[in-house]
Write a protein that binds this DNA or RNA. Sequence first.
DNA 1: TCGCAAATCTGCATCCATTGCAGATTCGCA
DNA 2: TGCGAATCTGCAATGGATGCAGATTTGCGA
Lengths: 208, 208
Amino acid sequence: MASLRDRKRARTRQALVEVAADLFERQGYDETTVAQIAAGAEIGTRTFFSYFPGKEHLVFPETDRRVHAALEAIDQRGPKDGPAEVLLRALRRVGDDSDDLSERLAALRLRLIREVPAVQGLSLRIQLDAQRQIATHLAAAFPERLDEVRAAALTGAFVGAVTGALQVLLEREESRDDPAAVQRALQEAVDAALAPWFSGAGSDRSDH
Amino acid sequence: MASLRDRKRARTRQALVEVAADLFERQGYDETTVAQIAAGAEIGTRTFFSYFPGKEHLVFPETDRRVHAALEAIDQRGPKDGPAEVLLRALRRVGDDSDDLSERLAALRLRLIREVPAVQGLSLRIQLDAQRQIATHLAAAFPERLDEVRAAALTGAFVGAVTGALQVLLEREESRDDPAAVQRALQEAVDAALAPWFSGAGSDRSDH
DNA sequence: TCGCAAATCTGCATCCATTGCAGATTCGCA
DNA sequence: TGCGAATCTGCAATGGATGCAGATTTGCGA
């Protein structure tokens, strides 16, 4: 399957992401031009746009993988799990998934989402799309208990809780140092917000 | 307070929004240039950017008003209301609010949010910002029961439920004709999603 | 191995949004 | 009436994005 052509393309794509990350860190997002990034990966400026639809997309390579992980988590539900339990487990999967580069990009990504409007916008659009996919999958997994709209509402509520809490947590400078603390506080706040669902005591803590 | 200068500025701003709406409807968003819009409102292209930070913003004039309505709703809570009840009432306020132009722009806005990435991105950014403001206000209203993070998680959950349901509802063509039906379905789905909170039967139906 | 067709890559020209700058214009108020 | 501040504008430049047409490269069957 992986022809020379495909491998080369993948390599170039990867190079683009890495070069961009370097430049964004060193010079800042707005100060880095697409031409520079393309040059760094040794391709023409015009060619860049056949790899990514736009500059912002460099910050979110491989979004699909995370969504797939969530969808799979839904499929692997236990016979006693309800939609809420399944959904929660699926969302945990999204938080995990750390690559070599992802790891390095994670911090940069968070900063750019905060500082660059275009990046934040894309981030939210990707999230909304993922949300819809998960909702659809969830509805399919519980045909008797959820229609598409209710599944979307439920998914939106859970994702919204996480996002909302995260937004506040990540704007605190203290949290910049201690990811573990953020993780803890997040878990706590989300648990509290979703408590009415899981009245039967808090569940496991295997997040992120 | 309203000096001639201010009034003139407001009038021009309004004109820009109206002209833009016309052009967006007639020619489409991408096919309409800022220069055209500016010309239509009889100002120089350069001047446009002193009224709006960018083209997309024309689709969301007066966002503040809606948020203020929500914040006020929080302040007017009854002594027996908990955070969830207050939040729900506040969110209803956001759905209301229909101006002369807003009414006309509403349909266009929904379409552009679906079709133009930049507009969708801005829409989500505005929503997230509103969400944070509401969360902060909510936390302040219930100092004993909510810290900022939990308030954000709770707000995110509620807003997320509405947004999620709406996303699915609005992509159905049938709904294009019958707003009342959408309203009903939305209410139902959100009620279902948030049921664990309001276990004591569904409340009133005065939305939108 | 050879050679063609498809997939890619590029440079070029162009459009358009956005911004800094500097010189008018206009308005608010003493 | 007259000055200082707020506005408005044109001009030029930057940079992202796209259509186009002519190379280049790769995959694969003859």
